[in-house]
């Protein structure tokens, strides 16, 4: 296996992805990710110098909306599935800076 995924990498990716893995899951994730990356490294065989990255497959541009209000009061729909709400707002654990 050419790629080796360290514990710190898995922990870091866990912070980015907001996933908490058990020790067992971490070990599996390290192995999975390493073998996936080995496989993905196959792309390095290709010379892509000068090739423009293609994010959209068709050259469709300039899809716009006119600036006209169309939506009614959406609070009821917005909160229809909320795990916890109060006074027409979602309730979350207190967000603090520190």
């Amino acid at each position: 296996m050419a790629n080796v995924i360290r514990d710190e990498t898995i922990d870091y990716v866990g912070i980015l992805a907001k996933l908490e893995l058990s020790q067992e899951e971490k070990e599996a994730a390290k192995k999975d990710m390493a073998s996936m990356l080995d496989y993905i490294d196959k792309l390095n065989e290709l010379d892509t110098t000068g090739v423009e990255p293609m994010s959209h497959v068709f050259p469709v541009n300039n899809v716009f909306r006119e600036d006209v209000v169309e939506n009614p009061d959406g609070s009821e729909d917005a909160l229809a599935n909320a795990p916890e709400s109060r006074d027409s707002a979602y309730v979350v654990p207190k967000t603090v800076d520190q």
């Binding site: 990498t9 898995i10 870091y12 990716v13 866990g14 980015l16 992805a17 996933l19 893995l21 899951e25 994730a29 999975d32 990710m33 996936m36 993905i40 792309l43 390095n44 290709l46 892509t48 090739v51 423009e52 990255p53 293609m54 994010s55 497959v57």
Partner: peptide, 29 residues
């Protein structure tokens, strides 16, 4: 979870060009 972890990794700082842009270039080819 496996795919989210992989996706977060390939977009993370330092890997974007090597993985994501490389894949988009491959897609063009």
């Amino acid at each position: 979870k496996r795919r989210i972890m992989l996706g977060s990794f390939v977009l993370s700082s330092g890997y974007y060009d090597a993985y994501y842009l490389k894949a988009l270039r491959t897609k063009a080819l």
